[in-house]
Design a protein around this nucleic acid. Structure first.
Lengths: 225, 225
DNA sequence: ACTACCATACTACCATACAAGTATGGCAGC
DNA sequence: GCTGCCATACTTGTATGGTAGTATGGTAGT
C-alpha cells in the first residue's frame, strides 16, 4: 500500500490524519471546503473507516466540522479563538521565562547558545525557513529547561487556528535581525537571572509578530467565522 | 435503542464517548484497566464502530492509550501533566483577573454578586456539591467577562488528569468559609479595579486547594506513570 | 527441569454492506 | 409562471466479516 509518500504513517488512519491536517493548515483545503468521506477515501486509496476516524480527530481539534447526514467541512477560522491562543501564549511564555531565570539547567542554556549561533548563521545566509524553525526551537528549549514541555505542546495545539492565518498574512517580511537580538537578550537575561528583563523582552518579542486578524478577516471574509 | 440512560447523546458514538469519559474520570474504570472494542460494544449494546471512534477521541485527550494489535487501556495518571495543568491554570487565572480589573462588564460583575449570594446560602446549608459547582461557575464568570471563554475551555480539558486525582485525595474537607472569603475579596478587587490585590488573592486562592500529588503517587503507585 | 516451538485465542485495523437523514431537480397540479 | 410534492442522489451513522499482529498456554524435544 502507501500509494502516497511523505507522511509519517504507521497506519492508514495516521496517514490520512496527517495528510489532511497538513492540507488544512496550509490552506490547500481552504476554510469552508467540503470534505466527504467517500471522496477522501478515493483520493487516499483507503476505505471510509480510517477517513472517518481522522475526521473524528480533526473535529476534536476544531479543524473540521461534521454535520450529521449533511457533510464534513473545513472549519472557518475563529478569530476569537486565534486571539485567545495569542493571549495564552504571551501569558505562559512570560511566566515560563521568569521560571527560567530562577532555575535553568546548564545544558539547556548551552542549547540556547548553540541555537543562537545557528540563528546567526542562517541570518547571514538569508535562510528564512531555517530561521523560522530555529525560532520555534529556541522557545521550545526554554520550556524544556523549565520542565514545562506539556505546556508547550498544549500551546502548539492551540496555535493551529493561528497558523492558518499565517498563510493569509501579507507576509510583511519579519525583521529577523531584530528577532535575533531579542533572542540573545532573553538568553542573556536567563543567564543573569534577571526575571524582570527577561519577561519584558519576551513580551515585546511576542508582540512584534502579531498580524492584524481583523484586517485579514476583512480581506478574506469567507474564510472567517 | 438507548438501553442506558443519563448520557447526553445524539448518536451512539457520543453516548459511548461520554459514558466512558465519565467512568474514567470517576476512576470507576481505573488507570491501567483494559478496555476492548468487543467488550465495550457488548456492554453498551452497540457495534464496535462507535466504540472505536470513541477510543480515538479519548486517546487524543490522553485518557486512553491504544496499542495496535495489543489492546486499549485507561492511561495512567501523568504527574507531570497534572502539575503543569495546575501551573497553567494559576498563570492564566492570574492574568485574566488582572484583565478583569481593567475592564469588566457590569452584568458579569452582577453575576459574580449573585453567585456569591448563592455561595453564602449553600455554605449555611452545608451543600458541598453545590458549593463546588458555584466555585467553578465563579471562576468561569470571570473568564466570560474578559471574553476568554476559549481559554477557560482549554483549561477545563487540561484539568482532566487532575480531576482523576480528586477521587483519590483523602478529601481533607476544604475550608469553604475561607474560599468564600477569597471569592468575595476577588470580586471586590475587580470592582475597585485593584489588579495587584486581585492577582495576589487569586494566587493564594488557587494554592489553597493543591493536593500533594507525589504523596498520592506513593499511596497508589499502580495508578501513576 | 528447562527451553524452543506452535496452536489458539485474543487484540485492533480495515473494508464493505446497509440504514437513515438531507438536499436537489424534475414534474404534476394549480 | 408558480408552488408543492416526490423520486433520487447524495451525505454521515452503524453493523459486521475478514485480516494481521500479539500474548499465552501447552507440548515436544533436550
Amino acid at each position: 500500500m502507501e500509494p502516497f509518500g511523505g507522511a509519517p504513517a504507521s497506519s492508514a488512519r495516521e496517514a490520512v490524519y496527517w495528510r489532511l491536517r497538513e492540507r488544512i493548515l496550509s490552506l490547500e483545503l481552504p476554510p469552508g471546503a467540503a470534505l466527504s468521506e467517500k471522496d477522501m477515501s478515493l483520493a487516499f486509496q483507503v476505505s471510509r473507516t480510517p477517513v472517518r476516524e481522522s475526521f473524528v480527530r480533526l473535529a476534536q481539534e476544531g479543524l473540521v466540522q461534521v454535520l450529521p447526514q449533511r457533510g464534513t467541512f473545513v472549519s472557518l477560522i475563529d478569530t476569537e479563538h486565534a486571539l485567545e491562543a495569542r493571549f495564552m501564549r504571551e501569558q505562559l511564555e512570560r511566566a515560563v521565562v521568569r521560571l527560567a531565570c530562577e532555575s535553568f539547567p546548564a545544558e539547556s542554556l548551552a542549547a540556547l547558545d548553540t541555537n543562537l549561533m545557528a540563528q546567526r548563521s542562517s541570518l547571514e545566509s538569508r535562510d528564512e525557513k531555517r530561521m523560522f524553525d530555529l525560532d520555534e526551537e529556541f522557545h521550545r528549549t526554554i520550556f524544556a529547561g523549565c520542565r514545562k514541555l506539556n505546556t508547550w505542546n498544549v500551546l502548539q495545539q492551540m496555535k493551529t487556528h493561528l497558523n492558518r492565518t499565517r498563510h493569509l498574512a501579507l507576509s510583511p517580511d519579519r525583521d529577523w535581525n531584530h528577532l535575533y537580538d531579542q533572542h540573545r537578550a532573553i538568553a542573556d537575561a536567563i543567564r543573569r537571572q534577571d526575571a524582570d528583563e527577561a519577561e519584558s523582552v519576551m513580551r515585546d518579542h511576542l508582540n512584534l509578530t502579531v498580524t492584524d486578524l481583523h484586517e485579514l478577516k476583512r480581506k478574506h471574509p469567507h474564510y472567517f467565522k
